[in-house]
Computed example of a mutant assay.
Amino acid sequence: MDEDNKLQFPSLPATKEDLLDWAYPMRREMQEILPGLFLGPYSAAMKSKLPILQRHGVTHIVCVRQDIEANFIKPNFPHTFRYLVLDIADNPVENIIRFFPMVKGKDTCNSHFSCSECQVLVHGNAGISRSAALVIAYLMETFGMKYRDAFSHVQERRFCINPNVGFVHQLQEYEAIYLAKLTIKMMSPMQLGRSFSLQAGMPGSRKRSLEEDEDFGAMQVTAAQNG
Rank of each mutant, 00 (worst) to 15 (best):
H56K: 14
V165Y: 10
I184M: 08
E211V: 05
Q191E: 15
R158W: 00
S209A: 12
K104M: 08
K47D: 12
S11F: 07
Y138L: 00
R208H: 09
I52G: 09
V93C: 10
K181A: 11
D4N: 10
I61W: 07
R55S: 13
A218H: 11
Q8W: 10
R158G: 01
F72V: 03
L192W: 09
A45N: 15
D90P: 09
P92F: 13
P41V: 02
K181M: 06
M30V: 01
I128E: 09
L179N: 05
S195F: 15
I97S: 14
L50H: 06
R98L: 11
S43H: 10
Y24H: 13
I161Q: 01
E29M: 12
S131N: 04
V64A: 05
Q220K: 14
S195D: 11
I161T: 02
S129I: 04
K181C: 06
D90L: 08
K207Y: 13
A70V: 08
F159P: 01
D21E: 15
A176M: 08
A150C: 08
F100H: 00
I73F: 03
L134C: 03
D215S: 10
R55C: 09
M219E: 14
F100C: 01
E94Q: 15
F143C: 02
V120A: 01
M186F: 05
P163R: 01
H123V: 00
I97Q: 13
T183W: 07
S197V: 10
T15L: 01
A133E: 04
D87S: 15
Q191R: 11
Q225Y: 08
E17M: 08
H123T: 01
G36Y: 00
A89S: 12
Q172G: 13
V93E: 15
N91F: 12
D87L: 09
N91Q: 14
F143E: 00
P25G: 08
A150M: 05
C160F: 03
E117W: 04
Y138K: 00
L37R: 00
S129M: 05
K185S: 08
A218S: 13
D215H: 09
G144K: 04
M190Q: 15
L19F: 07
Q170F: 04
